[in-house]
Simulated scan of single mutants.
Amino acid sequence: MTGKTDINPFLKQVLELGPPLAFFFIYLRLRDDSFMIGGIEYSGFIIATIIFVPLMLGAMGILWYLTGKLSRMQIFTAFMVIFFGGLTAWFNDERFFKMKTTLVYGLFALILGIGLLQKKSYLAYVLDEMLPMKHEGWMILTRRLCACFAVLAVANEFVWRTMSTDLWVKIETFGFPIALMAFLMLQFSLLQSYMDDPDHQ
């Protein structure tokens, strides 16, 4: 399949948000259980992580099949989930999966920061077609989002190292995404004056 095809927005949201929600509910169901596999005991968190990886890849595969493309961010996130999910299962250590969130947010902050040092907005490179905006607006948004990702990376380290797994799962599933979405909505509202009018050429 080639080209870009629009799909129902609700279906798109289900495919993007379904796997993390599935992980949350699977974890709630299995958190007090342990499983013996191949002579090794695994916690409910580890099993939930192992189940989450193919669920997410399956949803992304369907999204790719229906739309003909995946964003660079989706591909990168999939790689990180596979890599750290694999380490979590291989070493039977939930810390790897918890650190994934820190590294994802941290790398996003680093990439945006490198662009800023070059006086470029890598964010514009990824999103310009979907969100026409003047260069100055992109630079402002990139600086703010770079700082936001850095804060989220630090916050994740604090949460998983000092709080319970139950609380981390809840914050990972709901807290961080909601905080990021609220931040973006606020920024788009504040940066309206930098938006390009697609009807005015």
Rank of each mutant, 00 (worst) to 15 (best):
F149I: 02
T142S: 12
V104R: 01
A109E: 02
P9M: 06
A153N: 02
A109Q: 03
M80W: 02
V169Y: 04
E16G: 10
L141N: 02
K12Y: 10
G3P: 09
W138Y: 09
Q192R: 11
F91S: 13
A179V: 14
T165C: 10
D93P: 06
A48D: 06
K170C: 15
L180I: 07
Q187A: 08
Q187T: 04
I178L: 15
G86C: 04
A22E: 06
R29W: 10
F25S: 14
L66G: 08
R29E: 08
K98A: 13
L145M: 11
V151D: 03
F188M: 15
T173M: 10
P54E: 11
M133D: 10
Y194W: 03
A22Y: 10
C148R: 03
S121Q: 04
F25A: 15
F188V: 11
F149P: 01
M99C: 05
I171R: 00
Y105E: 03
I46Y: 05
G39P: 01
I75D: 01
S121W: 02
G68L: 09
L141I: 12
K69V: 14
M36F: 09
Q74N: 11
F24H: 10
H200F: 12
A124D: 13
D6Y: 09
G115Q: 08
M130R: 09
F35V: 11
F83K: 06
P198Q: 05
L30T: 13
Q187K: 04
E136T: 00
M133L: 06
L123D: 03
S71N: 13
A179N: 07
E172T: 11
L21R: 09
S43Y: 09
D128M: 05
P198F: 09
F35A: 08
F45C: 08
I178P: 09
I46K: 10
L123E: 02
I75Y: 00
L87M: 15
P132R: 03
T67M: 10
A89Q: 05
L191P: 00
L186P: 04
L11R: 07
I75P: 02
E136I: 00
F52H: 13
R29D: 03
Q201F: 08
E136Y: 00
R95G: 06
S71L: 10
A155D: 04
P19V: 08
L116T: 04
K69A: 12
H200G: 01
A153S: 15
Y122D: 00
F108A: 01
D33P: 05
E129W: 02
N156R: 03
G68T: 12
L180H: 05
L123W: 02
F174V: 07
F45N: 05
K134I: 06
T142W: 04
V81E: 03
M181Q: 05
L184R: 01
